[in-house]
Amino acid sequence: MIVQRLDWIDALKSILIIIVIWGHLIQYYSGETEFWENSIWEIIYSFHMPLFIFISGYFFKNKPNLIESLKTKAIQLLLPGLTCAIILYIKSSHLNNIQLIDIKHIFESACMNLWYLKTLFICLLGGYIFFRFKVVSIITFILFWLFIRSGLYDYIEINLIYTLFTAIGGGNGLFFLLPFFILGYCFHHYNVYIKIKKNIYLISFFFMWYILMQFFNGLDTIYFASPKWFSNNTLFYEEIIRTIYRDSVALFAILFLFILFKKYYNSAYTNLTINKVFEEIGKNTLGIYIFQYLIIEMNLFNLPFLKICQNPFICIIHSILITLIFNQAVKYIQIYKRFSTLLIGG
């Protein structure tokens, strides 16, 4: 079945993947030892992944064939992590002693890389199961929530289980993104847009985001947060407030940007070349995300990013150019179906 795409969604996703690359260039190659204090990095990391998963939730639908759906999503979201782990293992081995493959190392690397894709897979899995076993799903989630929030996660001594939890950010990533996945689903399912599409709401969401961002800093992101809320009859109020604050910042940013694009991305101008380019990038964000992991985050080819990324504003120009190059690479790889499936999930 051919799925009709929405131009404004593809355009929004293209902007998101550009700022993902921008944020990673600042993080890894700005030359700043405390990159989390960079104001542009703070803005990017206040909303970019929550908005991505909100969009996934927005289009989530229960599928009649659970096994087939999970198989498709596993190939799309989990297989690239394994392929990337093998590629990086081969590189680190310098093609020496490849016959002595360290399966454990590859498995751990596959679990820990591309954490967002694993978290998205868990959200989709939870959604599919919820529609079939609502009570069991709710009880399971509550027990998992208590397990993580109580700090029992820290006492896991079984390496396999610890590695699997790490794959979703130790629970922190999942707890941060799952509410926005659910919100995206509800936003579409209950047609919330109709109720809040007036400009007064759009302006209000922007100002709330702007005001909250005045107090936001990089240390408020999940990368520096603890998933623990309570332990030994002690509540960690500071971490609870921090979580609520972080989620509120992301919420207002999502509502503003999502409504802005849905309302004002005019299809009458989609014949413009630049619009077509952005919409094409939006269709290939998964592949671009995987390419940027290998080439930017892991610097697979030892490229001199450090020399071009120390100015954050020049860095955005490089981010756009890199995105365009990666988009072409994705299009080229998609010609070879089997290789495309292994590397970028399809």
Rank of each mutant, 00 (worst) to 15 (best):
residue 5 R to S: 09
residue 9 I to W: 01
residue 13 K to Q: 14
residue 15 I to A: 09
residue 15 I to E: 04
residue 19 I to D: 01
residue 21 I to M: 06
residue 24 H to V: 03
residue 25 L to G: 07
residue 25 L to S: 03
residue 28 Y to Q: 08
residue 28 Y to S: 02
residue 34 E to L: 03
residue 35 F to E: 00
residue 35 F to W: 13
residue 41 W to M: 05
residue 43 I to D: 05
residue 44 I to G: 06
residue 45 Y to K: 00
residue 47 F to I: 02
residue 49 M to Q: 05
residue 52 F to K: 14
residue 55 I to C: 04
residue 59 F to V: 04
residue 67 I to A: 15
residue 68 E to W: 07
residue 68 E to H: 13
residue 70 L to C: 04
residue 76 Q to R: 15
residue 79 L to Q: 00
residue 81 G to C: 13
residue 82 L to F: 12
residue 82 L to H: 04
residue 85 A to H: 00
residue 89 Y to A: 07
residue 89 Y to T: 13
residue 94 H to E: 14
residue 95 L to H: 10
residue 95 L to G: 12
residue 99 Q to V: 13
residue 100 L to S: 15
residue 106 I to D: 03
residue 107 F to M: 09
residue 107 F to N: 06
residue 117 L to T: 14
residue 120 L to F: 10
residue 121 F to H: 05
residue 125 L to D: 02
residue 127 G to S: 12
residue 136 V to A: 13
residue 137 S to Q: 01
residue 138 I to M: 07
residue 145 W to M: 07
residue 149 R to A: 10
residue 151 G to Y: 08
residue 151 G to P: 02
residue 153 Y to E: 10
residue 160 L to R: 09
residue 163 T to C: 13
residue 164 L to I: 15
residue 166 T to W: 02
residue 166 T to L: 00
residue 172 N to S: 10
residue 174 L to V: 08
residue 179 P to E: 01
residue 180 F to K: 10
residue 189 H to W: 07
residue 190 Y to S: 01
residue 194 I to S: 12
residue 195 K to L: 08
residue 196 I to Y: 08
residue 197 K to C: 11
residue 197 K to A: 09
residue 198 K to W: 06
residue 204 S to H: 01
residue 206 F to D: 05
residue 207 F to V: 14
residue 207 F to E: 00
residue 209 W to K: 03
residue 212 L to S: 12
residue 217 N to H: 10
residue 221 T to Y: 03
residue 221 T to H: 00
residue 223 Y to Q: 09
residue 223 Y to C: 01
residue 226 S to H: 04
residue 229 W to N: 08
residue 235 L to S: 04
residue 235 L to H: 00
residue 236 F to Q: 02
residue 237 Y to T: 08
residue 238 E to S: 11
residue 240 I to P: 02
residue 242 R to S: 14
residue 243 T to C: 07
residue 245 Y to T: 04
residue 246 R to Y: 11
residue 246 R to Q: 05
residue 247 D to Q: 12
residue 247 D to E: 08
residue 253 A to Y: 04
residue 253 A to I: 06
residue 255 L to V: 07
residue 255 L to M: 12
residue 259 I to A: 05
residue 261 F to G: 01
residue 262 K to Q: 15
residue 263 K to W: 03
residue 265 Y to G: 02
residue 269 Y to F: 14
residue 270 T to G: 00
residue 271 N to T: 11
residue 272 L to T: 10
residue 275 N to M: 09
residue 277 V to C: 07
residue 282 G to R: 11
residue 283 K to F: 00
residue 286 L to R: 14
residue 287 G to P: 07
residue 288 I to Q: 04
residue 289 Y to K: 05
residue 291 F to C: 07
residue 293 Y to R: 01
residue 299 N to T: 02
residue 299 N to K: 07
residue 301 F to P: 03
residue 302 N to T: 03
residue 304 P to Q: 08
residue 306 L to G: 05
residue 306 L to F: 09
residue 306 L to Q: 13
residue 315 C to T: 12
residue 318 H to K: 04
residue 319 S to K: 01
residue 324 L to F: 15
residue 325 I to C: 15
residue 328 Q to A: 07
residue 329 A to M: 15
residue 333 I to D: 08
residue 338 R to Y: 14
residue 340 S to Y: 05
residue 345 G to N: 10
